[in-house]
Amino acid sequence: MIVMEHVTKSYAKDKPPALKDVNVDIEAGEFVFCVGHSGSGKSTLIKLLTREILPTDGTIVVAGQDLSQMKNWKVPYLRRNIGCVFQDFKLLPNKTTYENVAFALEVIGRSRHVIRTQVPEVLRLVGLEDKGPSYPDELSGGEQQRVSIARAFVNRPPLLLADEPTGNLDPNTSLGIMSLLSRINKTGTTVLMATHDREMVDSMRRRVIALENGKVIRDQDRGVYGYGD
């Protein structure tokens, strides 16, 4: 699903690279944590996978497509196969829960019929079937994150990327989000989640890729957050 070979990303010439010679191979259906301190390069790695940025060096293949060879106009079609979830939810404040999720289908040209069947279905999956008419500011943080997960998953992408999705949530709520992501992973969707939530990672016992200063320092199946820190 994801293959990164010798990937280096420098934002500026006079600064050390945000990612340095990263090699990662993630199979379809895996659930993978990407951990590391703030500034270790987690977000950079995720942005590379959605081709929001291009690597300075190395090759990245996502869902069989080489991203550095990809024509600009094809990028939207890549993104239709990748769901994205962020720490700050990125919901549209003037749209309801239903409209926020439907928006993701509308703007890729899905028919009304598809929208009317898939949106309620995904809202049920994330446990928000009653919250369709609510606006984001009427929802709790955990509920807002569920809406954003519903939006990321409504198109049933084979890959879901989550950049610190629990960063703004209390531990209980975070646990709920984690179990939701696990459930989505069980449907066959590959999940890559960047986080620095130590307890969560340790409790889940999934594959862990640890970054430090842009380098992969550990890649471990059924791993924990880390020892020294």
Binding site: T50, W73, P76, R79, N81, L92, A104, V107, N155
Partner: peptide, 17 residues
Amino acid sequence: RKEIAIMRLVGASNWFI
């Protein structure tokens, strides 16, 4: 700009945006 950012995120085509 927010709508545009989300359109990009979910894969709306450039012409659609």
